[in-house]
Simulated assay, not measured.
Amino acid sequence: MLPKRNSGAEAELGMANWVCTSFSSIYEPIRKAGGGAYYLLEDGFFRNPNYASVPEIRMVESVKPELLGLERREDMYGLVNELEKLRFLKEPQEFEEFFGEVFEKN
């Protein structure tokens, strides 16, 4: 079993996060456990045995970004000039149509 780099794609994985200005990461528990709760390997997901209890993995379909005023494949870094489009991060209650769809599918 070998780790997968970018499941289902030949291109290198690009990754980034949107976070609130008051956000700070707490990595110590993850470091102590030797990584995340699951690893994606060539044979599928492998549960990290260093966690006493973890929920089962669930797969959800992606939702419609246009409900947030976003477009698929839109460069997220360009949004720093359009912060209003990221309002859903701080005020999710204002976007029930979007988040309701996410929770209805589960």
Rank of each mutant, 00 (worst) to 15 (best):
P3D: 07
P3E: 05
R5K: 02
R5A: 00
N6K: 03
S7Q: 14
G8Y: 04
G8M: 01
E12N: 06
G14R: 12
G14V: 08
N17M: 13
V19W: 03
V19A: 09
C20G: 04
F23V: 02
F23K: 01
S24P: 06
S25I: 09
I26H: 06
I26G: 05
I26M: 06
Y27P: 05
Y27S: 08
Y27M: 15
E28C: 00
P29F: 01
P29A: 00
I30M: 11
R31G: 06
A33I: 02
G34P: 01
G35C: 04
G35F: 11
G36K: 14
Y38I: 12
Y38H: 13
Y38S: 08
L40M: 04
L40Q: 05
E42R: 13
G44I: 08
R47A: 13
R47G: 09
R47N: 08
P49M: 11
Y51D: 09
Y51C: 10
A52I: 08
S53K: 15
S53L: 15
S53H: 15
S53A: 13
S53F: 10
P55T: 09
R58A: 04
V60A: 12
V60D: 15
V60E: 13
V60K: 15
E61G: 14
S62G: 15
S62M: 09
S62F: 06
S62V: 15
S62P: 08
K64M: 11
K64V: 10
K64S: 11
K64I: 12
P65N: 09
P65S: 08
P65C: 07
P65G: 11
E66Q: 02
E66T: 01
E66C: 01
L67D: 11
L68W: 00
G69A: 05
L70N: 06
L70F: 13
E71T: 14
E74A: 02
E74Q: 03
E74G: 00
D75H: 06
M76W: 03
M76P: 15
Y77T: 11
Y77N: 13
G78S: 02
G78W: 02
G78F: 00
L79W: 03
V80G: 03
E82Q: 13
L83A: 13
L83W: 10
E84R: 12
K85G: 02
L86G: 00
L86E: 00
R87Q: 01
R87K: 04
L89G: 06
L89I: 12
K90W: 01
K90N: 05
E91N: 04
E91R: 04
P92Y: 06
Q93I: 10
Q93T: 15
Q93K: 11
E94Q: 01
E94K: 01
E94P: 00
F95P: 00
F95M: 00
E96C: 01
E96M: 04
F99I: 05
F99K: 07
F99V: 03
F99D: 02
G100A: 05
G100N: 04
G100C: 10
V102F: 07
V102S: 07
F103S: 05
F103K: 09
E104P: 07
E104N: 14
E104K: 15
K105I: 05
N106Y: 12
